[in-house]
């Protein structure tokens, strides 16, 4: 696909998204984000607004740069050797890549849950939940309340309340994933990035996490990468569809309210993808 065509599609589509929700303030904005690994450009010209306290799903086939994109939003991208970036990410109006910004501060406000559950093996369940406070040097009182609150929000409290001191390694994959969600919530982020949080989970755990996401979106902004169309429909308010042509960097083909993307897409490729015809 030519660059000109792609520019056009973005321009014509963007107003529909912001036009839908004039009341919601924008919390996070990606502006003209392009990403390189070494000399290879993997993502080109991504422009997305994330309204406050909504859920945005990023969908698209594997290798189109969704995970790469989400990692640019809390400055984890720069940790990969050879990583480069153009464009800006505005968090509450300020560029998170400006030189006077401390990346640890950004990551504290924009939390992240990864594809593979990564509880810290040297800590207990309780220790894992509170680890963010310890690691970021954040002061919060009433640790017992925090543990109960966040584990309840993550849908894990009832399963672990009697063994908070147990090794985090004893949990099943689904429980471990809910534990790291609780861990991410304990530092009270304003945005939560989730990179395929359910890809390794059974349907029951997936359902619990989806309920958690819906519940969370009352207070925080959630951005979730998913390969599961039904999940995107179930949990998200907005959807952005990423696509990469062969040997071309990935880009956003279409974005807007989730109902529009799935029931009334403007682009033929979006229609094909959401109906499972490729990807």
């Amino acid at each position: 696909m030519s660059t000109a065509e792609f520019d056009q599609s973005v321009e014509t589509l963007e107003p529909s998204m912001s036009g839908r929700s004039p009341a919601l303030p924008i919390q996070l904005t990606a502006r003209d984000i392009s990403v390189w690994f070494g000399k290879r450009k993997v993502l080109e010209g991504v422009n997305i607004d994330f309204p406050k306290n909504t859920v945005t799903a990023l969908i698209g086939p594997s290798g189109c740069g969704k995970s790469t994109f989400i990692r640019t939003l809390n400055r984890l991208h720069e940790l990969i050797p050879g990583a480069a970036l153009a464009g800006e990410v505005l968090y509450e109006g300020k560029d998170i890549y400006s030189p006077d910004i401390d990346p640890t501060h950004i990551r504290l406000n924009i939390g992240m849950v990864f594809q593979k559950p990564n509880p810290f093996p040297s800590m207990s369940i309780r220790g894992n939940v509170l680890s963010g406070l310890k690691l970021s040097g954040m002061k919060r009182s009433n640790h017992d309340d925090i543990v109960e609150e966040t584990l309840t929000a993550a849908g894990l409290w009832n399963e672990v309340k009697d063994r908070l001191g147990a090794h985090a390694g004893e949990l099943s994959g689904g429980q471990a994933q809910r534990l790291v969600i609780a861990r991410a919530l304990a530092v009270q982020p304003h945005v939560l990035l989730m990179d395929e949080p359910c890809s390794a989970l059974d349907p029951a755990s997936t359902l619990k996490i989806e309920e958690t996401i819906r519940e969370l979106s009352k207070d925080i902004t959630v951005i979730i990468v998913t390969h599961n169309m039904q999940q995107a429909v179930r949990v998200s308010d907005y959807t952005a569809f990423f696509l990469a042509a062969e040997n071309e960097p990935g880009h956003v083909v279409e974005q807007g309210p989730t109902t529009d993307i799935f029931s009334n897409p403007r682009d033929q490729r979006t229609l094909d993808y959401v109906n499972g015809r490729f990807g």
């Binding site: 809390n74 810290f120 690691l135």
Partner: peptide, 10 residues
Amino acid sequence: LRTGALALGS
């Protein structure tokens, strides 16, 4: 584990 810790603002 390292990325997980850094993502918590460590």
